[in-house]
Design a protein around this nucleic acid. Structure first.
Lengths: 234, 234
DNA sequence: TCACACCTGATTGTGTGCAATCTAGGATCC
DNA sequence: GGATCCTAGATTGCACACAATCAGGTGTGA
């Protein structure tokens, strides 16, 4: 299942991972020729990949001016978290009755893994949490089995960007976030939708507090000292 | 503002209108060459238009097998209306404080127009409601000024499909729906977010009842007599 | 010295050709 | 007679070439 049929799909996936992995800074230009060379395909699949990722909200497309990695203002982030607050807890609740023992096991494994690689100390690997976290939330979304809700989230949250940077968490918030994952698993195991819903609400609000603070901080820093980074949004 | 810069954008808009206008049946095949000839461009912009509309959810793309107009099951429709119920009322409430006198005038004009062309009797033009309705809801979305919420709706509702067919309304539901529009305008004019929110909730639930019934009816009809329509989903 | 116009290099937008893949129909074998 | 294989036609996927557009730098004039 790893071997994808078309070059386009491979390009989409590769490019998505590149952006999600933080390979490109927010606002960085994405030249078609450069990407084509990097991915080993022609411009045609790259172009289609950019179109799809633009639809996902990962990149921004302006006519005749190419693609850039999407950047987010503090206001937009607040809106996104506002939305997540109203959607994801419901999703978690919906997931509970649909979760079988093996699903619980999967979620538990992911939560434990995140706890392991995320806890402060030697061996902490903040970048390692990102894919685990994505899979955790993705599993819940799949279990909820509500396509409309799922695509609404996908359409607005562009989750990857939001979930990308665990480096912005302070230690208390990070510990809390990791504990939430474990607690959600317990709620699912106990078959208690309202518990899961409540913890998920707290989980999102916690993340919101961290992200909004970080975005504001970043904004003021950019305003005061305009660093000459190689790639910058105009 | 009508003159779009690139052929691709023109192709996207033209194709969207074609699908929304019911030019193609649900599940109908959309050949690249056929569309290219019809729109007067080459396959390249058509191809890009198809990927964009696929991202919007209007068409479905399968590798090496081309594009088809997206079809919806009754379950999916229920999910979509479930979502709209939780998002659009909030959106209406958010729009209220941002609406100036000219916005109210615009909404009032649209509501009146819909009442005029939609009321049963001579001169009724059900197809004429569609663009007005889209503009009405679109205006509210814009006024709410909540990008994340807006794109969540856009991502899941694929509103056009849902709003496409006013022919499925029975007379009572249609009258009620048209009355809702007027009442929403009054709520906005009165500056009462909760009123607007409540009416919008009723509005969506009313539409939901009509659509879900229609979808189920259609499903049973298709199951019993498989009509040999020119275009059919396989 | 500043403002404006022009020009050039680079990048994107679009058209077209060829190879790969899929669908449909008929022939062959069991 | 039914199922399978094979072939032919059509369609999509991808690459490349050319045209259109944009950004940055340079030169000229006030």
């Amino acid at each position: 299942m790893t071997q994808l049929a078309t070059s386009t799909e491979r390009a989409v996936d590769a490019l998505r991972e590149l952006v999600l992995g933080g390979e490109f800074a927010a606002g960085a230009r994405l030249g078609e020729m450069e990407l084509a060379a990097r991915l080993g395909v022609s411009r045609t699949p790259v172009r289609e990949a950019l179109t799809r990722l633009a639809a996902e909200g990962l990149v921004e497309l302006s006519p005749n001016r190419g693609a850039r990695v999407r950047a987010w203002t503090a206001t937009e982030l607040e809106g996104i978290f506002d939305l997540r607050t109203s959607l994801e807890p419901r999703l978690a609740a919906l997931a509970v009755p649909n979760a079988g023992p093996e699903d619980v096991a999967t979620l538990a494994r992911l939560a434990d893994e995140m706890l392991r690689v995320g806890s402060p100390g030697p061996g902490q690997d903040l970048d390692g949490i990102v894919p685990l976290n994505r899979e955790f939330h993705g599993t819940l979304v799949a279990l909820a089995d509500h396509p409309a809700l799922a695509s609404a989230l996908a359409g607005a949250v562009h989750a990857p960007i939001v979930l990308r940077n665990f480096h912005t968490y302070d230690e208390a918030s990070l510990r809390r976030s990791l504990a939430h994952h474990v607690e959600i698993v317990d709620a699912v195991r106990a078959g208690d939708p309202e518990w899961a819903q409540a913890v998920m609400t707290a989980h999102i609000r916690n993340a919101r507090a961290v992200m909004v603070r970080a975005a504001k901080h970043q904004a003021t820093r950019q305003a005061s000292t305009r660093q000459a980074g190689e790639q910058e949004a105009p």
